[in-house]
Design a protein around this nucleic acid. Sequence first.
DNA 1: TGACACGATCGAAACGTTTAGATTAGCGTT
DNA 2: AACGCTAATCTAAACGTTTCGATCGTGTCA
Lengths: 343, 343
Amino acid sequence: MLHVAQVARVSVATVSALINGTATVSPELSQRIEQAIRDIGYKRNAIARSLKMGTTRTIGLTVPHITNPFFTDVVSVIQQAFDRAGYAVMLCCTDEDLNTQDDQIRLLLDRMVDGLIVARVGDGAILKRIVDDANVPVVLLDRVCEGVDTDTVVLDNQRAVFDAITYLIDLGHRRIGYISGSFDISPMHDRMTGYREALQAAGLPVENELIRFGNFHEVDGYNATMQLLSLHDRPSAIFSANNPMVIGTMKAIRDIGLSCPEDISVACFDDFPWSDVFQPQLTTVAQPVQAIGEQAANLLLDRLAGNRDAPPRKLALKGRLMIRNSCRPLGPPLGAIAQSVSA
Amino acid sequence: MLHVAQVARVSVATVSALINGTATVSPELSQRIEQAIRDIGYKRNAIARSLKMGTTRTIGLTVPHITNPFFTDVVSVIQQAFDRAGYAVMLCCTDEDLNTQDDQIRLLLDRMVDGLIVARVGDGAILKRIVDDANVPVVLLDRVCEGVDTDTVVLDNQRAVFDAITYLIDLGHRRIGYISGSFDISPMHDRMTGYREALQAAGLPVENELIRFGNFHEVDGYNATMQLLSLHDRPSAIFSANNPMVIGTMKAIRDIGLSCPEDISVACFDDFPWSDVFQPQLTTVAQPVQAIGEQAANLLLDRLAGNRDAPPRKLALKGRLMIRNSCRPLGPPLGAIAQSVSA
DNA sequence: TGACACGATCGAAACGTTTAGATTAGCGTT
DNA sequence: AACGCTAATCTAAACGTTTCGATCGTGTCA
């Protein structure tokens, strides 16, 4: 900028005024400056600007795993929204790990992001401290957090799973296996509650041997399913609390020589683009990813626009049960059904 | 930092020296400073540091679409690699659009990223200018670019498609539909060449009516497939040049009342996690995503570590044909085969 | 005892912006 | 002709670091 000013024979202040439109500058000088900018190929240094202005026009986004299609979609929507608003997005993956997440958030705050969208954080206390320390607006995604009073976008997880399990019960299933993610984050807790309540509402027992825990990955779903399928009295249906784990479930079913839905029904949380193209077409709980991403972005953009003092806003969205053909009604001999379907 | 210095009754220079270990500071002062840092809750301002140092420890990464599972995986690998090295990653999605990509790269350069990984850029000239202007190391991914002489990681696209098409020919297919992405990026060009050469090597004609173009999205695959299937003499197999489009292909096949592989065989570029769990299990060309991501990250990290003057390195990796059951041999009546397979 | 090296600490300039406040010139009013 | 007003421009301080060179004891050696 100094260089531009010298070439245009003006002061840096005038150059700055022209670039930012913060003051009127005469036509002659404007032209000289613009010419100099073009000649030199000058680009404003955003770092210096950030230092002076105290704002980076960058936000931080942390998700557990970008390969989970739910988060992939949400990241995509959020990225687009901030792109439109002229913000850059720094993306971090926490790998479902608390320490990693902690590090990531610190990394982002060190870089002076203007705001933070955090999906699925583990520990309320740490987050709370971080949020309080750095005076930066935070939006929590897919997670409520005790003691952290900030904008939040979540799904009504409990209700969604309640509906899905009730659907299975209505089909005639009595022993329904449930594969949960680790319990220290609220969605997993709520989903499990939905499972229990659906069983109880139908007068069915909640049996611990039917409940397994995994760490969200495919391999965890695989192992959990293997355990469920080798039970003395194995379940007739399995519900997986997230998407990567259901891949493991399907692989385990295949490896053990069973098939879905003939031998065992499967449903899971989170829809994905392929679900209605391949067989079996998985019955899923679809989250409104577009809305979730947009709402989260809007909440943060609103804070960034200056609306700092509004009370925390908590948005709860509804999931939708996408009924396909991976769950079969219990009762009639299977052969007949399969025939008539494939005809 | 000034505040810390005042509280510890030392100069800012000493605080800086202690924090960075750039000079020895006596035990007493060290202790006073550390205490002050703790008391105040001081965090070094990375922006100010970046301004002074001329380095942000941040890299820019642009991909066409993060929802394409190939790019999702690559992004994930790259993110992890840079995370380990203490770099943050700014992610941009170009939406397969040239102007968008241009804007994104400018945005990233304005923010003084230390390096850039660009996947699938469209126009060589623009990129070249940008790369030359900003004196920043660039790694090209999934794309060679005429006139831009920089580190590159690509797949041997031509060979990979050649092998896939040859596989279909060996199965007895003679009329093989091909759905390409738009032609102005090198992978699409090379893949098409692989298609043509495989046909020619087998003495088969290259028929234009069997070749369709789309813009990488599901809907494009859908439309292209609809056209192919309504041909007077429709193809017995379809190869889709990318992954999202093949979803459209499968949906079109379903909507038109056909089934795969019974009525039509399907194969595509890019593997995805679900491909061997659901039916039909899609035959795909799998890219070594892990290796691609790691190599790209390593190339850039090496430049960032100071190795600026080494000549551009071009890495070409090999794809792998994952043969599953979405392509059937032509000839014998289908019933018998399906029976024996499902038994 | 003086010269000198060395280790610890500090002062101040620099990175490239923004911006408050000072300065200047031009112009109409009285 | 003196005055004040406005618009255009400039000067210089600030943002929070890093780092070069200066300063100041202190101990060592001749």
